[in-house]
């Protein structure tokens, strides 16, 4: 890591994460951290296990080994994570700083309590529901409470009407941000691909996450849309209390917006650092260019030689 950070509890810390599917080891002892206010990118060749890491963090898979801790507050008492782990409980309340052991929680609780939202590689919108409905469904838990688990809502209580108006307000706020207000009442399945991608991000943001996990948000976008996406993600990072963890193949997106890059290959971490460090990391270049294991040391030496000659500006 280039930047030295004050010793606070990171937002997300993944430790010794291992995921086996039968005999196949998809992730092998992976550890990394995602800091508050950062855009952390997870990159690697196809099949490196990036989406599996996402599925472990968001509770869709139960990791075989490992701990995934999410801390809402930066000032955690020392050893809070260890104490929580030993206690056998799943989380500490928000009053005590909000600490969550994600590997112990089911998927919907991770979004509802630990405040992690995610998008999917193949877009998963509610295609038969309108754009607005998609954003309102995302605020389900808050609205359920406001509707008194439907009882207050059935009699049309004022508190519920007010909560619903607020939910619509939040939805229109995000619709404005993604320039889809004029299509609010159209079915989500009718939107063009790029708009669907942005709507999925807006829907995830409507859950008010602390950590937003994006699985290849730029896949299938044209350069202009990709540019818009960059500014949307920067806006989320800068103006909201939301850090971003993203998987991406599009290096123009990764290098431009991320503050921190983690590189995976065959389920293990091969590099971790700022985008500039990653660009010049020989192991990363080898992984991306596909070098045989035996030749790797030779290639590394060659790269080192080249780098000493001139300032490398090569893309990985």
């Amino acid at each position: 890591m280039a930047a030295i950070r004050p010793s606070t509890t990171p937002l997300l810390s993944v430790e010794h994460l291992t995921m086996r599917f039968g005999g196949l080891v998809a992730i092998d002892g992976l550890s990394f951290k995602a800091e508050r206010g950062d855009i952390t990118a997870l990159i690697g060749p196809n099949g490196a296990g990036k989406t599996t890491v996402f599925n472990c963090i968001t509770g869709f898979y139960k990791p075989t080994i490992g701990r995934i801790a999410l801390a809402h507050s930066a000032q955690m008492p020392p050893h809070a994570v260890e104490r929580l782990t030993e206690s056998g409980r799943r989380w500490l309340d928000r009053a005590k700083g909000g600490l969550f052991l994600l590997e112990r929680m089911p998927d919907f609780e991770i979004t509802a309590k630990a405040k992690i939202a995610r998008t999917f590689q193949n877009i998963r919108l509610f295609t038969g529901m309108t754009v607005l409905e998609n954003l309102i469904v995302a605020q389900h838990n808050a609205l359920m409470r406001a509707s008194g688990w439907s009882l207050l809502g059935l009699i049309g209580a004022k508190s519920f009407t007010k909560a619903q108006a607020e939910a619509i307000e939040r939805a229109t706020f995000w619709l404005d941000k993604i320039n889809l207000t004029h299509r609010a009442d159209d079915p989500a399945g009718d939107l063009p691909y790029g708009d669907q991608r942005r709507l999925e991000i807006a829907r995830a943001m409507c859950t008010r996450p602390r950590l937003l996990c994006l699985d290849e948000p730029a896949a299938g976008l044209n350069p202009r849309e990709s540019h818009d996406l960059n500014s949307l993600l920067r806006y989320i990072r800068d103006e909201h209390d939301t850090a971003i963890l993203l998987i991406e193949h599009d290096m123009s997106v990764v290098m431009e917006i991320s503050d921190h890059v983690v590189v995976l290959e065959h389920g293990a971490k091969i590099a971790d650092g700022t985008p500039d460090e990653i660009k010049n990391d020989p192991a990363v270049i080898a992984a991306y260019l596909g070098v045989e294991d035996e030749e790797e040391s030779a290639v590394e030496a060659e790269i080192a030689q080249l780098q000493s000659g001139r300032t490398a500006e090569g893309t990985p």
Partner: peptide, 26 residues
Amino acid sequence: KLRRLPIGRAWEALREDEIACRSLGI
């Protein structure tokens, strides 16, 4: 009435995509 309440919308969302529902904390 229920269709216009969060519970009804969650039913329909469930019909559309269960995995997306879980990712939204439902």
